[in-house]
């Protein structure tokens, strides 16, 4: 036996150390899991009176509380989709052009500053975007943009009556959210686009392709999955935004089809209604929170799958 008394001591001392180490690790991992379960559980439990009573009408109903006593979140679900999808469409179009420009068109010296600026802008707190949106963009839109938009065809149907345009509107919400998610989208999509292997680009040019043909037929298709992942990430963030949109959208409790009138979203409604809510109102808001959580969960899964698939694809090539 090579083990002496001394080394047995050392061995057992280290085995105590070892089990302490893994116990602490496992404990914290377990604690985290418990906290997460507590978090979700508390939300679901508080929402239970409403979730159990009226699960379907919660999603389809259009009135909130009042004398009927039932809570329908459809206007807020609609508003969340309106604003977040609208914002992401704008952000993706402008963002792709921006990313392509950064990677392929702007001179080397400016590139590093631009990339750093984009990443820092992605870290700006959302309430600052809300402040800018409410105090700067809102008045600007009311003064210059809304009157101009009133001249578009069929404006009455999808924008509303020009005399009734309000400072707080769905369109303003879409714009503010678009500006907010743009830096994050550009940061991710730029990286994806920049990682398209150089020899694919050289091959495209060698066949006689023009710059735009190379971009649209080679670079963008190769980055497609990653861009989609970045877009769903942006969508998830836009859908969950509270304070950026709170002052912006107005808090109208119905389904809003006119873009220049006020509307509401799930997150903003929760925040704005909380102060005056009754007991059942609070439960309903918790239920709305559950809805928001589910939507965000689905979007997050989609985006993570996409980004992982893109990473795998690039590794293989």
């Amino acid at each position: 036996m090579l083990q002496t008394n001394a080394s047995t001591e050392v061995a057992s001392a280290t085995s105590v150390e070892r089990s302490l180490y893994s116990t602490v690790l496992t404990f914290c991992a377990g604690l985290f899991t418990l906290i997460a379960l507590l978090f979700v559980g508390n939300l679901v439990w508080r929402a239970w009176p409403i979730l159990s009573r009226q699960p379907l009408t919660l999603v389809t109903g259009t009135s909130w509380g009042g004398t009927i006593g039932s809570y329908g979140a459809w206007p807020q679900i609609f508003g969340t989709l309106q604003t977040s999808v609208g914002a992401v469409i704008i952000a993706v179009i402008a963002g792709l052009g921006t990313s392509i420009s950064i990677v392929y068109l702007i001179p080397q010296r400016v590139k590093l500053i631009t990339i750093t600026l984009v990443e820092l802008l992605a870290a700006v707190p959302s309430i600052v975007y809300g402040c800018w949106g409410f105090l700067i963009l809102g008045p600007y839109m009311t003064k210059y943009v809304d009157p101009a938009l009133a001249h578009l065809p069929f404006a009455k149907y999808w924008l509303g009556n020009p005399n009734l345009y309000t400072t707080q509107s769905v369109l303003l919400g879409i714009f503010v959210l678009a500006v907010m998610v743009l830096p994050t989208f550009v940061a991710i999509s730029r990286e994806v686009i920049a990682s398209v292997p150089n020899d694919l680009i050289e091959a495209s040019y060698s066949l006689g392709g023009s710059w735009w043909q190379t971009m649209s037929k080679v670079v963008l298709p190769a980055s497609k999955i990653g861009i989609f992942g970045a877009a769903s990430l942006a969508l998830a963030r836009a859908a969950g935004e509270t304070v950026a949109i709170l002052f912006i959208i107005g808090g109208f409790g119905g389904v809003q089809t006119h873009l220049l009138y006020p509307g509401s979203t799930l997150a903003a409604w929760i925040a704005s209604q909380f102060g005056e809510a009754t007991t059942s109102g609070i439960a309903a808001l918790m239920a709305m929170g559950v809805l928001l959580m589910i939507i965000n969960f689905l979007l997050a899964i989609i985006s993570r799958r996409m980004l992982a698939a893109q990473r795998r694809r690039m590794a293989r090539v």
Binding site: D199, A203, S210, V218
Partner: peptide
């Protein structure tokens, strides 16, 4: 673009367009 449609190139590593 015209020139490169008259002169083709094959690269060191095979690089078919993955998409």
């Amino acid at each position: 673009t015209e020139l490169r449609s008259r002169i083709g190139m094959v690269f060191q590593r095979p690089n078919p367009f993955p998409s």
